[in-house]
Design a protein around this nucleic acid. Structure first.
Lengths: 204, 204
DNA sequence: ATGCTGAACATTCAAGATAATGTTCAGCAT
DNA sequence: ATGCTGAACATTATCTTGAATGTTCAGCAT
């Protein structure tokens, strides 16, 4: 008669985690990670602070989950550009770099609190940013290999080249630098960098 | 080189300025900028703290002069590499990048105090780092133009390309990043970046 | 006049006290 | 048994205040 009311990963529990993350995310975005207390998050979820610890190891763990989600979003943007397979690889590389720049600049300008949170969490949990970098590296590898496959690019060592590209666009990936110039200046620079890289990658 | 805009006073005064800078430099290197007091610098020079203000506007001004000197040293290293005109431009570009990396890493590892001072001063006086960047940009322009003149390079826009190169080696220029990897990893990356850039610059 | 100083003043730093927050857990309610 | 809480405890942040330091200037010595 009754359908099963529980499972291996009980859905109520998942729901609660999501509710907590949503509440915490809103607080963090509005007031920052440090200024948000566990008690406040708990109140938003109509529960006690102690109860939060049944779903997350601690505050940093909540922050880490949110930071991961932010980085995943960032990654998804890049992925979407890379997988526009109807476009030439060269154009996609160009778009990837400008996408990364525009996202970094945008977050820095419009969501400073979230940005501050991501930075703080990544400071405390280096593996998160490592994972993100690795994933982004793999996306660039995918793009380069596709370019080679299509005879657009000629690349001796794809791994090395992907690393070189990642390194070369550091300025556009680190929020800290965003205060140095306005977006137009950055875009001009990004285009110069892409042009320089492409002239080295293209097959002739 | 950074122009000294601070004084055109006679040579005995310059001597005192030099003595003060030397004393301050030693203290800053050993104890850091913040932990060094004007009174201590003054005592090292057998004078009163008040007398320091006859030669420098304030403590930051002393720090600025020393920071400029550090950046001038850095610049001189690059200049020396660029002006090894018996070497191919490509090789010189390679050496410039590795020189910058090695110097950044070395200062970070061996002179953390001085490094901290330069960073602090540059935070307070952005024009110092701007001047340094401009000078370095010009050196790279010089190198690129030389490469073009010798028919090694083919470069549509030297200014843009020099900017692109400066941008692409950000990771190797900023002390803050030095904690991310060990020197070998950085050198490997630097070589990849140089190779990528060179394959774009070289005439074929 | 010139070069310098000691003392005064303004600002920053640091140590200790206090409050706020993060975390844990025994125990209550269902 | 399970889910949750209030209270206790540990850690971290904030505030306060005296001391240290940066800076200025009237006045002394040459």
């Amino acid at each position: 008669m009754n359908t099963r009311t529980y499972s291996n990963t009980p859905s109520p529990t998942c729901d609660v985690r999501t509710r907590i993350l949503t509440a915490a995310g809103e607080r963090f975005a509005q007031f920052g990670y440090n200024k948000t207390t566990m008690a406040e998050i708990a109140k938003d979820c109509d529960m006690s602070a102690a109860n939060l610890y049944r779903f997350f190891k601690n505050k940093l763990d909540i922050g880490s989950n949110l930071a991961c989600a932010c980085l995943d979003t960032k990654l998804l943007l890049v992925k979407n550009v890379v997988q526009q397979t109807q476009q030439p690889a060269a154009e996609r590389l160009h778009n990837v770099v400008l996408q990364i720049l525009s996202h970094t600049h945008n977050e820095w300008a419009n969501n400073p609190r979230i940005n501050e949170m991501v930075t703080a969490i990544c400071d405390a949990r280096l593996e998160i940013v490592n994972q993100y970098e690795l994933n982004r590296h793999n996306l660039i590898v995918e793009l380069l290999e596709d370019g080679v496959r299509r005879d657009e690019f000629s690349i001796p060592d794809v791994q090395d080249t992907a690393e070189a590209i990642t390194t070369a666009i550091t300025l556009f990936s680190v929020p800290l630098f965003m205060s140095l110039h306005n977006l137009e200046t950055f875009e001009k620079r990004a285009k110069s960098v892409v042009q320089l890289m492409l002239s080295g990658l293209k097959k002739r």
